[in-house]
Computed example of a mutant assay.
Amino acid sequence: MPDPAEVRAGVDLVAIGADLEPGTLLSAYRNGLFPMPIDPDKRRSKLAWYSPDPRGVLPLDGLHVSKSLRRSCSRYRVTMDHSFEAVMTACADPAREGRWITPEFIRAYTTMFELGWAHSVEAWNDDGDLVGGLYGLRIGAFFAGEAMFHTATDASKVALVELVEWLNSTGAELLDVQWATEHLATLGVVEIPRPEYLRRLRSATEAGEND
């Protein structure tokens, strides 16, 4: 795959093709790339590999937790790595606008979960229903957030609070969210230039073994 450092500034799409094998994914994330299907509704959609410039990251000391979100944190039961595939399936709901997660992605990242590289955070209501969550990959002190979902107020945000607490307690350095959005900005997400992101990524992935 091309080196993102050699891609023209402001260009997000870096490559097309390859596969979702564990070795391919680990190599891609270590080099600042992540995959998305070009057309998720096609049976054989090609893979596109992105390295956004600028890149959205959430400083691990910069999560904005409002008073209402603090109250919501006591409303749900939160678990980690309890229902990885269920979280991915919920994130892949065809009714969601902008859905991009295909069955191929679910299989690939579930394999990464089974190998210990991928993680999920789940939020449950009092009835025991999964109402929110997120998932991503961890390499050393780096976490790549992939997607999140909610079917109840603030449930995905509560999962994010738990994720940040876990990352801080385990020596993480970098939480990547790919692209910044207005919604994510309200939670503290900022944008940094690709060269800075790649420097921080290199430091974080080399900081320690996969937890």
Score class of each variant (00 low, 15 high):
202 R>I: 02
91 C>I: 10
126 D>S: 14
82 H>T: 11
93 D>I: 07
140 G>F: 12
166 W>K: 12
189 V>W: 07
120 S>C: 05
203 S>I: 13
166 W>E: 13
180 A>G: 12
98 G>C: 02
89 T>A: 14
23 G>C: 06
184 L>A: 02
159 A>T: 08
179 W>V: 10
68 S>P: 05
141 A>R: 13
9 A>Q: 11
31 N>T: 15
72 S>K: 09
10 G>K: 07
66 S>V: 06
105 F>Q: 05
171 G>M: 03
139 I>E: 14
113 F>E: 12
37 P>D: 05
143 F>T: 09
178 Q>C: 04
35 P>C: 05
192 I>T: 06
37 P>E: 01
30 R>T: 10
199 R>S: 15
37 P>T: 14
110 T>V: 00
51 S>Q: 10
7 V>E: 04
21 E>T: 01
117 W>G: 08
144 A>V: 08
42 K>P: 04
42 K>N: 07
98 G>T: 11
49 W>E: 09
122 E>C: 01
209 E>R: 15
45 S>Y: 03
100 W>T: 05
42 K>Q: 14
84 F>D: 02
18 A>Q: 10
103 P>E: 04
200 R>S: 10
141 A>I: 13
46 K>S: 15
98 G>V: 01
104 E>H: 11
27 S>M: 13
110 T>C: 00
13 L>Y: 06
47 L>R: 13
35 P>T: 02
192 I>R: 06
53 D>M: 08
134 L>P: 04
65 V>I: 15
139 I>D: 15
38 I>F: 13
198 L>P: 08
199 R>H: 13
139 I>K: 09
182 E>P: 04
74 S>T: 11
152 A>K: 14
11 V>H: 10
154 D>T: 06
67 K>Y: 06
98 G>S: 12
103 P>D: 01
146 E>D: 11
30 R>I: 10
124 W>M: 03
50 Y>M: 15
33 L>Y: 07
80 M>N: 07
15 A>T: 11
169 S>W: 03
117 W>S: 11
110 T>M: 00
110 T>L: 00
41 D>R: 14
12 D>T: 07
85 E>H: 01
1 M>A: 15
50 Y>W: 15
